[in-house]
Design a binder for these strands. Structure first.
Lengths: 235, 235
DNA sequence: GAGTTAAGGTCAATGGTGTTGGCATAAGGC
DNA sequence: GCCTTATGCCAACACCATTGACCTTAACTC
């Protein structure tokens, strides 16, 4: 059988593969992340990952419960990377902006994992640490508990939601992504102005803006409203 | 060959399949939507869809350019359902709020399909109609072209992003979803108050709020900022 | 060091997937 | 009623994840 997964800490015998590499959970996750980044959405498969590691594909099942388990492990790694090395400045708006962009960026660096991971509540240590930090920033800024929770919820969900949305195109094959982007020029720019006056009037602006993430703008709008609510409450 | 796709309008000969069904783009999309809803997004495959239609899988390639094309058609159908029966009131903020909630709702009615399609640009008629309507509302409200495009982008992406995020839990089985929600009470509410003071202080509020969508709050915050920018520009 | 155990490799097979080239047949225009 | 060809079907290809059986050898015991 190939399905008895041994937790990493309990591993004792590290037998090298036929091609000489010594497997470990860490090595597998890092190799998987690299493959996803370099070869795109279609790049990650048990067979290819095995080949890249110099091991039989079935060896992976000694470390993870199927490819799904592997992607969850990758998700944990992403959260870790988003928070690694971050520390608050004490200016709440700057802190929330920086943290949001970090989370968004860490997920976008690995779109496939982002798509599978972004909408799940793991309850694991690093996720809890992030939640605690965000709530701390808001409450430290002077928001009441109710406001802090409401804004925290909109803030974290918006960050993850945009991460997943923006990851979508990146997770496509290169051709599919190119044709999605091109559509803004090929289809939208050529619509008849009488039937679609508003698109026609803004076609150039649309083609320039749509291929980029709207997250920074949406984040700033959210922070704007939060800041005003804080000022109103204080006044 | 099985790859010359004929647009629906140009179709003339409607030859029934061996099992007697008469294929059409509409029938295929509706069947696919039903399959996705009943068996999850992983349950949709060319072979199974073919079987459900009483047709050979390869017949689908006469209607769509691969499964990816079918995915785009499903997204188009969802947008169409969101817009069906909607008409503007002339009050821009009310219109944008209503339209956003409609889009969000239409996608959530088919969570699995939403996960599949929310991040795709289809360039098809009904999606274009939605874009034209939103841009029209903004420009009609008095926003300049640049502002209109910027707000449009943040608005539409926010709607779709939250639709996809909120669809995630709904696409899970009932038990898995319940355990996700419960985690806010079981895990977060029991964290030590000294290590996690902010979570501990707001645990009750979190448990009450987190299981619901943050989209209405985030949408309102976006509209708030837009309204203020309009007022500032006009003043 | 020799013997034993089982972790952790490999191999081969199963049943799934999207996709395509070639073929057959019937629908619709004449 | 004939002809053309759109459109359905078949068979095949190359890939995929996963698993059960088998084998090698690291690590522990004496």
């Amino acid at each position: 059988m190939a399905k008895d997964v041994v937790p990493e800490e309990a591993r004792r015998r590290r037998r090298p593969t036929r091609q000489g590499t010594v497997l470990s959970e860490k090595l597998i996750v890092e190799t998987a992340l690299r493959m996803v980044r370099e070869h795109g959405s279609a790049g990650l498969s048990a067979r290819r990952l095995g080949a890249a590691l110099g091991a039989d594909p079935s060896s992976l099942y000694r470390y993870f419960e199927g490819m799904d388990g592997l992607t969850l492990a990758i998700g944990e790694e992403l959260i870790g990377r988003a928070l690694a090395g971050w520390s608050p400045t004490g200016r709440w708006r700057d802190d929330l902006r920086a943290l949001g962009l970090r989370i968004h960026g860490a997920y976008l660096a690995h779109p496939q994992a982002a798509l599978l991971t972004a909408s799940r509540v793991t309850g694991r240590p690093r996720e809890i640490a992030a939640d605690e930090a965000i709530l701390g920033i808001l409450r430290g800024a002077g928001f009441g508990d109710e406001d802090a929770v409401r804004i925290y919820h909109a803030y974290i969900d918006q960050s993850l939601a945009f991460a997943a949305l923006d990851a979508g195109p990146l997770a496509l094959s290169a051709e599919a992504r190119a044709s999605d982007e091109e559509r803004w020029e090929s289809t939208y720019a050529r619509l008849p102005a009488d039937a679609y006056p508003n698109i026609a009037a803004t076609a150039g602006l649309l083609a320039a803006r749509m291929p980029h993430s709207a997250y920074p703008v949406a984040l700033e709008m959210l922070l704007d409203t939060a800041e005003r609510q804080l000022a109103d409450a204080g006044a």
